[in-house]
């Protein structure tokens, strides 16, 4: 079991670094980092072995989390991150093939689990029984049919070294996922598709760590479903109706967010 206090601090450092990247743009994909910070911190600061394992960031809008986590752990040269989302930057705001530090990121949603299944299948074909594939997903993209094609494929092939981590933040462009299309009940759906399912409070690093351990030990493909909020960690600063997908971040709000996160990390 990793040091949970360290994982929690790593989550807030991910939030702070994401804030620094999004802040100069005055709007962007900060809500994703707020909801998924503990999930990324728990994988990056926990079972992930960069030399052996693959990380897939299926919703490319979450690449900010992967950049932040990798930079915090020294897996990525953080110097370039201040160009995130700017013209001519190598750190595009939506993940592409140029995105550093991940095996795959997909700006067109619903495709990442397929890629992760492909990596896991390749490892199987090559006899690399030790290699794991971590696929970060989000609940909005559960509306894409390809996710379920990939879910069936992975279960049929019993890709045991595939672990999906789903940020269930109930947020998509048009509003709460639950108000757009009912994707629930997610645990039952994944179970019915042949996966082992571990549903947790996605901001509780202890629960996430236990779930990841079980998911890795599972003899099927496994998914950790983290229930999260796109305002977590900055609830007191962001308005109640802050757009979780593409948040507006005027300078005064960004400053207050800085103070809040830095105070917590002090």
């Amino acid at each position: 079991m990793p040091d949970l206090a360290e994982i929690s601090a790593l989550a807030d450092r991910i939030r702070l670094r994401a804030l620094r990247m999004v802040e100069p743009l005055q709007f962007g994909y900060l809500g994703q980092a707020l909801s998924a910070a503990e999930l990324y911190a728990s994988v990056y600061g926990g079972p992930l072995r960069p030399a052996h394992d693959d990380v897939v960031v299926s919703p490319g809008h979450y690449i900010v989390c992967a950049y932040a986590a990798a930079a915090e752990l020294g897996m990525l040269d953080a110097a370039g991150l201040d160009t995130y989302g700017q013209d001519d930057s190598e750190f595009e705001a939506i993940g592409t093939d140029r995105s550093q530090g991940v095996s795959l990121s997909c700006g067109s949603l619903g495709q990442g689990l397929t890629g992760a299944a492909g990596f896991a299948l390749s490892n199987r074909l090559r006899g690399k029984t030790d290699a794991r594939t971590f696929a970060f997903l989000s609940d909005g993209e559960m509306e894409e049919g390809q996710v379920w094609e990939a879910a069936m494929f992975a279960a049929h092939w019993r890709l045991t070294n595939l672990v999906a981590v789903l940020d269930a933040n109930d947020s998509q462009v048009d509003g709460p996922v639950s108000s757009i299309t009912t994707v629930e009940p997610l645990p039952e759906k994944w179970r019915a598709f042949g996966w082992d399912v571990y549903e947790v409070d996605g901001h509780n690093v202890g629960a996430i760590a236990t779930a990841l351990d079980q998911a890795i030990a599972s003899d099927r493909p496994a998914i950790v479903i983290g229930r999260t909020s796109t305002r977590h960690g900055l609830d007191a600063i962001l308005p109640d109706d802050a757009d979780g997908h593409f948040i507006k971040l005027p300078p005064a709000m960004a400053l207050a967010a800085h103070e809040e996160l830095e105070a917590r990390l002090a």
């Binding site: 095996s103 795959l104 495709q111 397929t114 890629g115 992760a116 299944a117 492909g118 990596f119 299948l121 390749s122 049919g145 390809q146 094609e149 990939a150 069936m152 494929f153 049929h156």
Partner: peptide, 16 residues
């Protein structure tokens, strides 16, 4: 299987 979107993505990952 009859799942072309997934089949294409698998092929991409395997080619990588």
């Amino acid at each position: 299987g009859m799942a072309e979107a997934n089949m294409i993505g698998l092929a991409g990952a395997l080619a990588r």
